[in-house]
Simulated scan of single mutants.
Amino acid sequence: MNLSQAFAAQADTCTRMGSPFMGQLLGILSESWPTDSALGRKFSSFEGDIGPAGHSLPLRIAGGLHALVLSNAAPELAVLYPPNKATDDALRDGVLNALTTHEAFLLDWTDSPPQTNEVRRSAALIAGAHVALQHFNLPIHLSELGASGGLNMLWDHYALEIDGDRFGMNVPSVLLTPEWEGAKPPNASPSIADRAGVDLNPLDPSRGDHLLRLTAYLWPDQPERLKMTRAAASIDATRPVKGDAIEWLAPRLARAPQGRLHLIQHTVAWQYFPAAVQAHGRAVIEAAGAQATKNRPLAWLSMETDGDTTGKVGAALTLRLWPGDLTLNLGRADFHGRWIKWAYEG
C-alpha cells in the first residue's frame, strides 16, 4: 500500500464509521499530498505498514491538523472545519496552506503514532464488569493494559443506559447510550477498591498538551466524543504509569489482595502488542488464573478485533474467569463504542 492508497483507505473507513468530514479530508490528501516537501519526504521514509494497523500515517497528519484547529493556532483552517462546511476546493487550499505554514509543528507532531482514549468503550467495560460480578461479587482490583490517558479506568464514574435502564452512577460524569442489541447485562453494584494502568506512552489528561493530543485524534465532525473526553478528563483520578504492559502486570498479579476480584481490562490495545508479547502475557495471566481462589478470583475482560468481517466491523467482547477458567463470549462492539451487540444471557 502506497501513501495515496493509505489515505484513500482511511478515508473510506472514516466515512463508514460516521465521519464524512474525515472522508473528505483524507480523500483530498490522497489526491493532493505534497510529496516534494519536508513532510512528504518524512512520510516516504517510513517502512512497513503505513496504514491503521501500522504507522497510521493518515491519522497522524489528520490529528496534527485538528490540533492546530483546537489550539487556535490556525484560524484560517478552523473556518473550514466542522461545524462549518467547506467545498473540496476550499478545504484543499486551506489544508495545503496549513501543511506549509505549520510544517515545523506537523513534523514534530507526526513523530508519534495516534493516541486516543475512546470513552465510549467504557459501555462494554461496564457491562462486562457486571457479568464478572455476577460470578464473583467482590470489590474490584482493577488493572488496565494499554491505558493511554486512563479514562476507561474510570468507568465507575460513568453510566450505561439501555432503554431507560441505567447501569452505573445515578448522576454520572459521562452517560453512555450505545445502540444496544440483545439482552441487558445483569444487575450489579461495582465497587472499585483500587485502580492502576500502564501504557508505553501514558498521557495525563489534566495537562493541556496531553489533553490536546487525546482530543486531536477525535474526528472533528463528532463533537459528542470531544465532549465526553473532556468530561472524563476533568475527573481527579490515578493516571497510568509508563512501562511494558506484561512486565508491569506480572508483579501486580502476584500482589493481588485477598477479598478482591482482580479485573484485567484492555480495549483495542492487545492487538497492537507483538505476537511474542501476547503469548507471554497470555501465559502470565493463565498462570495467575491457575492460582486463583474464590476469595482471590481473576477476571480478564477484553475488547479486541478478532478479524471477523462477516457482520458489522467491530471488536469481540470476551471475559475469562478463574477459578474454573470459564470463557464467556459477551458479544461484539463498535471500535468507537457506538453500538454493542450483546450475546450473553446468563
Rank of each mutant, 00 (worst) to 15 (best):
L200P: 03
D163C: 03
E144F: 07
E118P: 05
H210F: 05
L176R: 04
T215Y: 01
A188D: 11
A193M: 06
P185W: 05
Y158P: 06
F167C: 04
I162Y: 03
L125F: 13
I162M: 04
E161H: 00
A159S: 09
A124H: 02
W109P: 02
D204I: 06
P205I: 08
P178V: 03
L176V: 11
T101K: 10
P139M: 08
L107E: 12
D108G: 06
A129N: 10
P205W: 04
A124L: 06
E181G: 01
R166W: 00
T215P: 00
Q115H: 13
E181D: 10
L99C: 09
G149T: 11
P202E: 10
E103R: 08
G164P: 12
I162D: 02
T215V: 15
L99P: 10
P190C: 04
W109K: 05
A188R: 01
S189C: 04
Q115M: 06
L99H: 11
S148Q: 03
A183E: 14
A196P: 00
N137R: 12
A159G: 02
P190M: 09
A193I: 04
T101N: 03
R121K: 12
A123Q: 12
A123E: 08
E118H: 06
G149A: 15
G150Y: 02
I192A: 10
N152Q: 13
D165W: 04
D156V: 04
P172R: 05
A123S: 15
V171N: 14
G128M: 11
G128E: 12
D163P: 03
M169P: 01
E161M: 02
L211S: 12
L160E: 07
S191M: 07
D199T: 10
V198E: 03
N170M: 08
R121Q: 09
V174G: 00
L151K: 07
A196K: 11
V174F: 00
N137T: 13
P178T: 02
P172A: 07
L133Q: 11
H135N: 13
D163M: 08
A196V: 07
Y158E: 04
G149I: 06
E103T: 14
A98T: 15
L138M: 13
G149F: 09
A183K: 06
E181V: 14
D108W: 01
V171S: 13
L106I: 15
D199A: 12
N201A: 15
L214E: 04
R213N: 10
H135Y: 15
P202G: 13
D163G: 11
V174R: 00
S173C: 05
P205K: 08
P186T: 10
L175K: 08
G197D: 07
L212K: 05
E161G: 00
S191W: 00
H102P: 13
A124W: 00
A104E: 15
Q115I: 11
S191L: 13
D111K: 14
G128V: 13
L151E: 06
A159Y: 01
G150T: 08
L211N: 09
